[in-house]
Design a protein around this nucleic acid. Structure first.
Lengths: 246, 246
DNA sequence: ACCTGAACACCGTTCAAGT
DNA sequence: ACCTGAACACCGTTCAAGT
C-alpha cells in the first residue's frame, strides 16, 4: 500500500496547540468584533483552527468561556499602584508595566486618587468591550476582578472606614461602576445596530407631556459621559468623606 | 363524506386569544420559574397553548419579548407619589392603588424620601425577578422605566439641582440601583444552581494572602443587603446634599 | 386578522474513536 | 494527553398555507 501519499496530511494546525489562554483570547476577539451573538463554540473553534468539540477538552462549558473572557478584560484595568502583577497569570500585559514598588509607605498614598483612578480604568475597560455589560449578571469571582476589588477596599480602608461601612462603601462604588457601564455600553457599536441614540431621543421628545423633566434636561441627548460618571463618583466620595471625618 | 366527525376538532384553545399582554405575562412567569435559560419561543408558546410560530404574529423577535418582559417588571415599582397610573397600560396593578392626588403642592413633598422610596422599590422589583439582572445590557426605553426615571429626576429637581448636575445625579442614582441588582441577583435562586455563596466564600478565604482586606471584612459573607444598599444610597444622597446647599 | 406545520440554518454538548 | 466527527436534542425565524 502506498499509504502516506494518499492519506491527506493532517490539516497542519496553524499556531501553537490549543490552550485555555488561546481560547479566551480568541473569545474576547470574537466578542469585540461581533458582539455577544457572535460568540459560538463552533465559530470560536473555527477561529482557532480546531474542531468545535475540541474546546470541551480545555473548558467544561460555554459559560466557562464567558466567565473567563469577562475576567480577562478586567485584567486590563491598571492598579493606580503601578503594582500590576495580576493574580494568577490571567491579566494580559499588553501595556508597559513600570512596577513602582518604590519605598514610601502604603498609607501615604491618597486613597481618593487611587479609588478614582481604579474606577475610571474599570469603566474604560468595560466600555472598550461593550459586550461585557450584557454578560454581567453572574457572580464575578475571577482573579482579576477580585484583585481590583481588593485594591479598592484597601484604598477605602486607608480613609479610616471600618466595617460595616467599609463593606458598604466597597459595594457602593463597585455597583456604581458596573451600573454605569451597563447603562452606557448598549449604545456602543457594534453590538446593537438597532437603536442609534437619535431614534430614542425622538421617541422621548414626542412624549413631552409624559416625561416633561426628562425631555427638559435632554435625558437621552449625547453628553460628556465620562464627566457625568466623574460627577456621580464625586457625590459618592463626598458622601463617604462625611463619614470619614468624624 | 362524513367530514366533521372524522376531522379532529381544533384543539380548543384554552383561555382568551393570544395577545402581546398575555405573551409578556407568560414570559415573566416562565422567567421567574426557570430563569433566563427557561425562556424559549417554543416553550413560551406551549405555555400559551399556541403554535410556537404563532408568537411571531404578535411580536417581531425574541428580543422584543425580553424587552417587554423587562419593562413589565418595572411596572411593579410603586411611585411613592401614590400616583400609579402607569404610562401606557403596561404596569400590572396587582397592588391596591390608592391614587393620592390630594391637594397639597407637589413641591412640598420631601424629595429625599421620594428618591429613597422609589429606589428601594426599584431594587426590590429586580430582586423579585433575578433574571432581570442578566438581561440588562440593552437600552431601557420602555414606558415603565421612563416613568420611573421621570419621577426620579422630578424629585431631584425639587432639591434645587439644575443641569448638568441634575442629569448626573439622575444617572448616578439609576446606575447605582442597577449595579446593586446586577451584583446581588445572580446569587438568588433558581437562576444559578451553581455557586452557593458558601463555596465562593471558601474560595476567597483560601487566598487570604492575595486578598487580605476582602477576607478580613468577610466580603462574600452574608450580610444585610438591603441595609448595605441603603448605606450606599446615603453616601450618594449626602454627597448630593453638599451640592444642593450652596 | 390571526393561527398553523414544515422546513432552514443554526445551536451546545456527549461520546466513542483516533493518535 | 489531546483532538476528531458523528450524532442528539434542541434553538430562532421564515413562509406558504389555512380559517
Amino acid at each position: 500500500m502506498t499509504g502516506v501519499w494518499l492519506r491527506p496530511q493532517r490539516p497542519s494546525r496553524s499556531g501553537p496547540p490549543l490552550s485555555r489562554d488561546r481560547i479566551v483570547a480568541a473569545a474576547v476577539e470574537l466578542l469585540d468584533r461581533e458582539g455577544v451573538g457572535g460568540l459560538t463554540m463552533r465559530r470560536l473553534a473555527e477561529h482557532l483552527d480546531a474542531g468545535s468539540t475540541t474546546l470541551y477538552w480545555h473548558v467544561a462549558t460555554k459559560d466557562d468561556v464567558v466567565d473567563l473572557a469577562l475576567d480577562h478584560i478586567f485584567g486590563e484595568v491598571r492598579l493606580p499602584d503601578g503594582r500590576d502583577t495580576d493574580a494568577g497569570r490571567d491579566g494580559d500585559a499588553g501595556r508597559d508595566s513600570d512596577a513602582g514598588r518604590d519605598g514610601y509607605a502604603e498609607s501615604d498614598r491618597d486613597w481618593r486618587v487611587d479609588v478614582e483612578g481604579l474606577l475610571l480604568g474599570w469603566r474604560a475597560a468595560m466600555l472598550r468591550h461593550p459586550w461585557s455589560a450584557a454578560l454581567l449578571g453572574r457572580p464575578m469571582l475571577g482573579p482579576n476582578v477580585l484583585t481590583r476589588t481588593e485594591f479598592l477596599q484597601a484604598a477605602l480602608r486607608r480613609s479610616g472606614l471600618v466595617e460595616p461601612d467599609l463593606g458598604a462603601a466597597t459595594y457602593a462604588l463597585a455597583n456604581y461602576v458596573i451600573g454605569s457601564a451597563v447603562t452606557l455600553a448598549p449604545w456602543q457599536r457594534p453590538d446593537s445596530p438597532e437603536p442609534p441614540r437619535e431614534a430614542a431621543r425622538e421617541h422621548l421628545a414626542a412624549q413631552r407631556d409624559r416625561y416633561p423633566t426628562l425631555v427638559d434636561t435632554g435625558h437621552l441627548d449625547d453628553r460628556d459621559w465620562e464627566a457625568t460618571f466623574r460627577q456621580g463618583l464625586t457625590y459618592l466620595l463626598d458622601g463617604l468623606a462625611v463619614r470619614t471625618r468624624d
